[in-house]
């Protein structure tokens, strides 16, 4: 158990390290900076590999920030001069508020035939 606690400590610490942000401002910033074009307006991701889902359960802050500033694969790099730190913190605050949808078993159209 102690080993497990030690293993998970860094992730917990990273999540707590997220800067203060406003989800309301973050929603506006999410649209302004066009995050939604590849990730969808509620962070659901997009068809045919355009962009992965962001929520629910986004990356810990450190990973989120790293991907935005120095992305891998096709995502463009959003540098500080074009996306200030506070706006990014607000976007992260917004993404963290996105709730999980109902499961497929609760949606008649998505039940297995």
């Amino acid at each position: 158990m102690k080993v497990l606690a030690l293993l998970f400590f860094p992730l917990v610490a990273l999540a707590q390290d997220a800067p203060q942000g406003s989800a309301e401002r973050g929603h506006k910033a999410f649209l302004k900076y066009q995050c939604y074009t590849c990730h969808g307006t509620v962070g659901q991701g997009a068809d045919r590999g355009a962009g992965p889902k962001l929520a629910p359960n986004p990356f810990p802050w450190a990973g989120f920030e790293f991907q935005v500033r120095t992305p891998r694969q096709d995502m463009p790099a959003y540098r500080q001069q074009h996306l200030p730190d506070q706006d990014l913190a607000d976007i992260y605050a917004y993404v963290r508020t996105i709730k999980a949808p109902p499961s497929a078993s609760a949606i008649p159209l998505l039940k297995a035939d």
Partner: peptide, 10 residues
């Protein structure tokens, strides 16, 4: 099917 639920009512 689970991934299709994301943004279902968007």
């Amino acid at each position: 099917r689970e991934s299709a639920t994301l943004g279902w009512d968007a």
